[in-house]
Simulated scan of single mutants.
Amino acid sequence: MEIIRYAELKAQPWRNGGGVTRELARHPEAVSPRDSWDWRVSIAEVSKAGGFSAFPGMERVLTVIDGDLLLLNVDRAEHPLEKYRPFRFSGDADSAGALPTGDIRDLNVITRNGAFKGYTSIIELSKKRAHPVFAGQWGILLQGQAAVSPGSAGGSAAPVELNRYDAVVGSDTATPEILGRGFLAVVSIDRVSDG
């Protein structure tokens, strides 16, 4: 069972000084130039209004996960993004954000067009019914208290407490299961089939 601890992720400052990004996962992992990966999951802290980086040939799903509102301008059309409402747009688009209610934090899922498709769902956790996280998924604790266990195939391992923004990496063998109270983002990245 793999847990990505948010507190251990390195903050990467934006070039325009408007915020920082912490990368949860990307594929392939070993590449260093920004544009050579096929998908990336990250959390950004946005502290200043301004332009967003372009990601040519990519598609983005952005979800406000902390703070009230991001006014996202995409190709001169304004989109008010409220907390926990995923929004999909082209990485090629000219995009900028305004912060009418203060700083926000957002979850970004960026995928290469024609190769992968990303999805973000926000679910309310239950203390009675565990939420499984399958291969190709990440479960990110957004709010509340939760613990993860390796599921029935993983034996009798004790549940592990999650902190805010920790991510559980999905698996189909010992499928992690999350129990608790609060909200979880479930990110799925699917390979686009050729035909």
Rank of each mutant, 00 (worst) to 15 (best):
T101L: 15
V64I: 06
F134C: 06
R164N: 10
R34P: 04
G102C: 13
S126G: 02
R191H: 06
T173Y: 15
T111V: 13
K10W: 01
S126D: 09
A135G: 11
K48P: 03
R40G: 02
W138Q: 07
V187T: 02
D92W: 06
P28S: 10
M58S: 01
S90N: 04
P33R: 15
S152V: 06
A185Q: 03
M1F: 08
L62Q: 00
A7R: 15
R22I: 01
R85C: 12
G19M: 07
G144M: 05
V46F: 10
A185T: 03
Q12M: 11
S47E: 10
A130I: 03
I43G: 04
L99G: 11
E124P: 03
R76Q: 15
G139F: 01
S193N: 10
R112W: 05
Y6L: 12
A96L: 11
A30R: 11
E45T: 14
D103I: 08
P13K: 04
I104K: 05
N108G: 07
L9F: 13
L107Q: 02
Y84N: 10
I3K: 09
P86C: 09
L141F: 08
L9C: 10
N108V: 02
G118N: 00
V41N: 03
R129V: 15
L81K: 04
P159K: 09
G155Y: 01
E161W: 13
S95H: 05
I140R: 01
D75K: 05
I43W: 01
V133D: 01
E78R: 11
A130M: 03
D38R: 08
V169F: 01
S42M: 12
A54T: 08
R85L: 14
A11D: 13
P132I: 10
F89L: 02
